[in-house]
Amino acid sequence: MPRTRIHNFSISLDGFATGEPQSLEAPFGHAGQRLHQWMFATRFWDPSGSAGVDDAFAQQFAVGIGAEIMGSNKFGPPGWQDDESWTGWWGEDPPFHTPVFVLTHRPRPALTMGGGTTFHFIEASPSEALSAAQEAADGLDVRVGGGPTVVRDFLAAGLVDHLHLVQVPILLGRGVRLWDGLEGVEESFDVESVASPSGVVHLTFTRRTD
Rank of each mutant, 00 (worst) to 15 (best):
E186S: 07
A136D: 15
S193T: 08
T4Q: 00
E135G: 12
G181K: 03
E135S: 07
S48W: 10
E20H: 11
V168H: 06
W38M: 12
D14T: 13
I6K: 10
T209G: 04
L130N: 03
T104Y: 06
I69A: 09
G32F: 15
H164W: 01
G91H: 15
Q22N: 08
Q60M: 10
M39F: 08
G71W: 10
G145K: 15
F96T: 05
S48A: 13
Q134W: 06
A26P: 05
T42I: 11
G175S: 02
V151T: 03
G116D: 06
R43N: 12
F154G: 00
V150C: 01
T209F: 05
P107A: 04
P107L: 03
T98N: 12
D46S: 14
S50F: 06
G146D: 06
A110L: 15
H97A: 08
L13A: 13
V144S: 02
S85T: 10
Q59V: 13
D210F: 07
T42M: 07
T112Q: 07
T42N: 05
F189K: 01
E92V: 06
G19R: 11
S72C: 14
W80Y: 09
R3H: 02
A17M: 14
L203S: 14
P197R: 01
P126M: 01
F44V: 08
L163V: 02
V100I: 15
G79Q: 15
L111S: 11
R5W: 02
F189M: 02
M70F: 04
H120K: 03
V160C: 01
E183K: 03
A156W: 00
M39R: 10
A26D: 09
D93L: 06
G19E: 08
D83T: 10
A110Q: 06
A136C: 12
G184T: 00
R106Q: 06
E192T: 12
S127Y: 00
F61K: 11
A137M: 06
W45I: 03
A133K: 04
T118S: 14
S12H: 06
